[in-house]
Amino acid sequence: MLKKIAVGTLEFVGRYTIDMVKAIGLMGEFVGDTMKWLSRKPLRMGAAVDQMVEVGANSFPVVFFTAMFTGMVLALQSHTGFKRFGAESMVGTVVGLSMTRELGPVLTALVVTGRAGSAMTAQLGTMRVTEQIDALYTLAANPIKYLVVPRVIAGTLMLPVLTVMADFVGILGGFVVAVMLLGANPVLYMEKTFEFMEYNDMFSGLLKSMVFGFIISVVGCYQGFYTEGGAEGVGTATTKSVVMGFMLIFLANYILTALLFSNGGGGAKF
């Protein structure tokens, strides 16, 4: 009996490890192919612009809403805490730094993963199960070049744009709450917002967001590209895409934060 359980466990671990290694290999190959086609001209910039509209412009309302309310709630929360030791004037600083360094890039990335990354998976997954991707191959057209590269370009370029917008809207949301509800002085609030902000805060946030954009689009396309099993498979792939995207964003966020802020920025060394 014990032997049976031990063998079963070993089999499970073995199979899981093999599947995992296979998946990592496939993903590595996919990223390699994508980078290869990214470096080959001509790039399909028309398709990339269409995808920029999809990833960028169409995500604008939901990013705006998320950033606005995050900035507002951040002002409310920090004001409540800071009031206890008379540091209400630092609310603007906290909102500004939190939005540019962390919340702007991360929240934008999460929102875009749910909205655009999942859409990429669903689109490519549907194309896979309806043999449209095979049809591209038979027409001597490489699907990575035609479908993946424009999406990766769009994701990588549009995330920083959305992040700048989210930073701005978040700071604005905090300003509105602080000035209109909490009675802060508008000039002093804005002064404090930018007093401690450094070029690196904004730059590192944008760099992070570019990496997040790349992750979202590659994961979204990868999951769609290898979809199996009809409509149900498309649903499963879409869920996997969002979960995997979230996990990789949090992982990359920690690594990038540790790298970018470790020299004089107060970040941890890992």
Binding site: T126, M127, T130, E131, Q132, D134, A135, Y137, T138, L139, A140
Partner: peptide, 17 residues
């Protein structure tokens, strides 16, 4: 280049949506 010699009609037609 070899694939350019071929045409293929798929079961569901596989037209690009």
């Amino acid at each position: 280049e070899m694939r350019k010699k071929f045409g293929m009609l798929f079961q569901g037609a596989a037209l690009f949506d």
